[in-house]
């Protein structure tokens, strides 16, 4: 099968979407031709569009912005709809991550992608929606299937098996196996405050009104 994977993160470097793609690639590589397209690097070339339009499986990976598909991804999807696909049997899978703790907050973006599938005439496969997206790459040194990486391991195994079999599956929403109250505190003390300090800002400065 020819599998096109779209990395819809706007970040040119490390991103949660890219990290999850890296986890999935070895699970779906055998016997398949994989192409990964990073749309943050500017417009795709004509030849790249042609490959996507002719793929057997399309995987869309992106972060959730303001409860839905981010605008740059939306533009890209609208362009794909306009260009059309060679086969109506292309199966669409989706990997969404959000900054809140609950993976289920990705459900509206999933609905949007399903609506896009109907507009483009493609076949819906499955969505996985991860909560606490910023935290997921921070757990890279913990073995998959253990501790906070237990759920993501199970989800990726199931998702990858469905892609390999070109089968549809139930949408799955999950979060790291970690207490929400602790994640909430860590977000402030391990992420926002240190990043503010690195920019020579105090905690109080973060509450300022916009200029």
């Amino acid at each position: 099968m020819e599998i096109s994977i779209i990395n819809g993160s706007p970040k040119p470097g490390h991103s949660t979407s890219g990290y999850i793609i890296d986890l999935i690639v070895p699970r779906i590589s055998e016997g398949n031709i994989l192409e990964i397209y990073n749309i943050s690097r500017g417009n795709l070339q004509e030849g790249q569009f042609v490959k996507i339009q002719n793929c057997d499986v399309l995987v869309l990976a992106f972060p959730l912005y303001v409860d839905s598909i981010p605008s740059h991804m939306l533009r890209f999807m609208a362009e794909l709809e306009e260009r059309g696909f060679a086969s109506k049997n292309t199966m669409v899978y989706c990997i969404i991550n959000n900054g809140f703790f609950e993976g289920k907050q990705n459900r509206i973006a999933t609905m949007q992608v399903k609506n896009w599938c109907k507009r483009t005439g493609l076949v819906w496969g499955q969505a996985i929606g991860a909560g606490a997206g910023e935290m997921i790459p921070m757990l890279k040194d913990i073995p998959m299937g253990h501790g906070p990486n237990k759920s993501i391991f199970n989800v990726l195994e199931c998702f990858s098996a469905n892609i390999m079999g070109k089968k549809a599956g139930e949408d799955i929403y999950f979060s790291p196996d970690w207490p929400r109250w602790l994640w909430k505190i860590q977000a402030s003390f391990c992420v926002w405050y240190p990043r503010a300090r690195a920019n020579k800002l105090t905690k109080r400065d973060l509450y300022a009104a916009g200029k």
Binding site: W192, R195, A196, N199, L201, D205, L206, A208, G210, K211
Partner: peptide, 8 residues
């Protein structure tokens, strides 16, 4: 907009 120029 959160950690460099808060609010902007």
């Amino acid at each position: 907009c959160w950690i460099k120029t808060p609010g902007t």
